[in-house]
């Protein structure tokens, strides 16, 4: 399943990366501790988080994350958006809480 289907189904707001949504999603990872994400996320995962600062882009780029979903309506910091553009990492926003975002994406990936 590609990221675009998830964006459409969850009505995610695309803050950056409209052109990078064709990427295949391998699974998801939920976490706000960067060491946890670095150690345990997998290439092609959607990363669900509340962190909005620019370091999330470095982590996502290093782990080749398919896209980041910021939950509970959290908007990315300006530098985060700039970094996302540099690295080509889709940055998406949902008004839903993390639990619901994770549940819905899980269901889509494991019907």
């Amino acid at each position: 399943m590609n990221l675009e289907l998830i964006v459409e189904s969850l009505k995610l707001r695309v803050r950056y990366g409209a052109k990078n949504l064709k990427r295949e999603v391998t699974g998801g990872f939920v976490g706000d501790l960067l060491s946890d994400v670095i150690a345990n996320s997998q290439e092609g995962n959607v990363w669900i988080t509340r962190q909005i600062h620019q370091n999330i882009i470095a982590v996502a780029s290093l782990k080749e994350i398919a896209g980041i979903v910021l939950v509970q309506g959290s908007e990315p910091a300006a530098e985060t958006l700039a970094r996302a553009e540099q690295e080509g990492i889709p940055l998406l926003v949902s008004d839903l809480p993390g639990f619901e975002v994770a549940g819905r994406i899980y269901k889509m990936l494991n019907p």
Partner: peptide, 16 residues
């Protein structure tokens, strides 16, 4: 607050 300092850094370095 930034999500660093979880006390996993050195442990991860050893683990991987």
């Amino acid at each position: 607050e930034m999500g660093f300092g979880a006390g996993m850094g050195l442990a991860n370095m050893k683990r991987f």
